Simulated scan of single mutants.
Amino acid sequence: MMEHDVRSMQPGPELDRQIDEVLFGRTFTEFPRGFCYHNGRGWREAAPYSTTWEGMGLVVEEMQRRGLDVHIDFVTFGRNKLVDCAIIRNGLEMAHLSMMPNAPHAVAMAALLALLALLALRGGEQG
């Protein structure tokens, strides 16, 4: 997956699945009703990381566990309320998204961009 692919992703199941695969290391299987992963007790769909504050919180917590800081700024321009999100590691900005319509979408996309950048730096290894 390339940066331009991530930047064009809308909030929803596809972005959520990418977060689950890259951030949490889950493997999905395609079923007639959609994609699911097995959690040891049963089949589950990806959590709504890019559409809910609860899902966003899971992403932020895992990023922090990995030593990455998540900076979220809320910006108001007249009637428009927009979100900027940056992912920082050791003082280095790994990803930055500006003027996003909502925080969960901004955080999910920035996290995915930062993780893909880290994977590229490490030569593709996950973790």
Rank of each mutant, 00 (worst) to 15 (best):
M99C: 14
S50E: 02
M1Q: 05
F31L: 03
Q18W: 14
A47R: 04
Q18Y: 12
A110K: 05
H38F: 04
M9L: 15
V22I: 15
D20W: 06
L121C: 03
N80Y: 11
M1P: 08
L121R: 09
M9Q: 14
E125H: 13
G124F: 08
L118R: 08
L68V: 00
R44Y: 01
E61P: 02
E45R: 02
D69W: 06
H105W: 04
D84H: 12
I88W: 06
G34W: 03
M9H: 11
R79M: 10
L68A: 04
E45S: 00
P101T: 06
H4A: 14
H71A: 12
I72D: 07
A114L: 07
T27I: 12
M100Q: 15
M2H: 12
I72V: 15
L118K: 10
P104Q: 00
S98H: 12
A108W: 03
A110P: 00
E54L: 13
E93K: 11
H96I: 10
G123C: 07
D73G: 12
M9N: 08
A117N: 11
G42Y: 02
L118A: 10
E30T: 15
L97N: 05
P104H: 01
A114F: 08
V60T: 11
G42N: 00
R66W: 10
A95W: 01
G127N: 13
T29Y: 12
G78S: 01
C85L: 09
C36S: 00
M56S: 03
G127Q: 15
A108L: 03
G67W: 02
P101V: 07
